[in-house]
Simulated scan of single mutants.
Amino acid sequence: MRETAPVFIITGEQGQCKTTFLYQVLGLMTGLDLRLRGVIAPGHVRDGRRSGFTLVDLATGRQEMLCSTDPSPGCEVHGRFCFRPEGLALGRRALSLQDTEETDLLVIDEVGRFELQGVVWAGQLDRLCTLPHPPMVWTVRRRLLDTVIERWSLEDPVVVDVGAAGVLSTASDVMDAIWEWRETHPVSPISPAPFINRHAAGDLPLMADAASGVGAGTPSIFRRRYTASD
């Protein structure tokens, strides 16, 4: 058993629904008493072009506008996007874990060219990758995949291509990694993450709206409830 758990990288081209795929994977885990941390960033489109992103803290359900193509006072400008201070602060708090062993899964949506330039979540990623961390799921554009892996010295990342991978098999692999992490690290009393709902994530489709009530036909990894006594 290794101290550092796998990093799963959901990848695809721009506009290929990486965040939707991620949301569906997380939806299968709803009701499993997981200590879920991190951020998910559903995008907005205006006139057929990406116009901004909302940021959702998975641990609290709180959301803020992360960035927009519309100028705003006090923003950090990166590329054509203006990053709002409230959104950046929310994300940096969500990714600044005081104790990585208090987390079952850490999600970062997404790691991209701004992080490679040393801004947005770069500082948090630098710290996380020097610690024994729990399983992580990142989303990364395909053209940046090799550069991101090299930049953060990721050893044997699990690459999940949305054009070929299945949501159920991906979620099962992530749950296996979580269970392995739990077997080798003490478990404190759980405060399960609320997980984002449809409204918080811009009405992204959930593959399973009631994962806590999965049936006998569901793989056993999902039928198990991960509790403080496990």
Rank of each mutant, 00 (worst) to 15 (best):
D146P: 01
R84N: 11
A59W: 00
T170E: 14
W121C: 05
Q117H: 02
Q63R: 08
R143V: 13
P71R: 08
V119I: 08
G91Y: 05
P157R: 10
G166D: 15
E101F: 03
E102Q: 15
E101A: 13
D70C: 05
V167P: 08
P135I: 04
A165L: 12
L55V: 13
E110I: 01
V137R: 06
W152E: 02
T69V: 14
G61I: 00
D156N: 11
D70W: 04
L125W: 05
V111Y: 01
A89W: 07
G87T: 11
L97E: 13
L128G: 04
S96M: 09
V160Y: 13
L55K: 02
L66R: 00
A171W: 02
G61W: 02
D146Y: 03
P132G: 12
L97D: 09
V111L: 03
L88E: 10
G79C: 06
L88H: 07
S153P: 00
F81T: 09
R127S: 03
L106Y: 04
T170N: 09
A59T: 01
T60H: 02
G118F: 03
G61H: 00
R84G: 15
T100H: 07
S153K: 15
L128E: 11
G118K: 10
G91F: 00
R84V: 12
E110S: 07
F81W: 07
P71T: 10
E115A: 00
V167Y: 11
E86Q: 14
E64G: 00
T54A: 02
V137E: 10
G79Q: 14
T170P: 07
P85W: 00
T130Y: 03
R142C: 10
D104S: 09
L125H: 05
H133T: 05
S72A: 12
G118P: 09
T60K: 00
Q63D: 06
V111G: 05
E110Y: 01
W138G: 03
D126R: 09
A89G: 07
T60Y: 00
V158I: 10
E110V: 01
Q63F: 04
S72N: 13
T130K: 15
G123Q: 09
G118I: 03
S96F: 04
T54F: 00
R93G: 08
V158K: 14
G87F: 02
M136E: 08
V158A: 04
F114R: 08
D146L: 03
V167C: 14
E110N: 14
E102H: 12
A122W: 00
A171P: 15
L144W: 10
E102M: 13
L95M: 07
A94P: 09
G61T: 01
M136C: 04
R151Q: 07
E101H: 15
V56Y: 06
E110P: 07
A94H: 02
H78V: 08
V119Q: 06
A59L: 02
R143W: 06
T139R: 02
L90I: 08
R93K: 14
V159D: 10
F81G: 12
L55T: 01
L97K: 11
W152V: 01
L97G: 09
M136S: 12
V162K: 15
V77M: 12
T170L: 08
H133G: 06
I108V: 14
H133S: 08
R141M: 04
S96Q: 15
G79A: 15
L144P: 13
V162T: 14
R127N: 06
R113M: 06
C82N: 15
V107Q: 13
C67A: 13
L106I: 11
M65T: 08
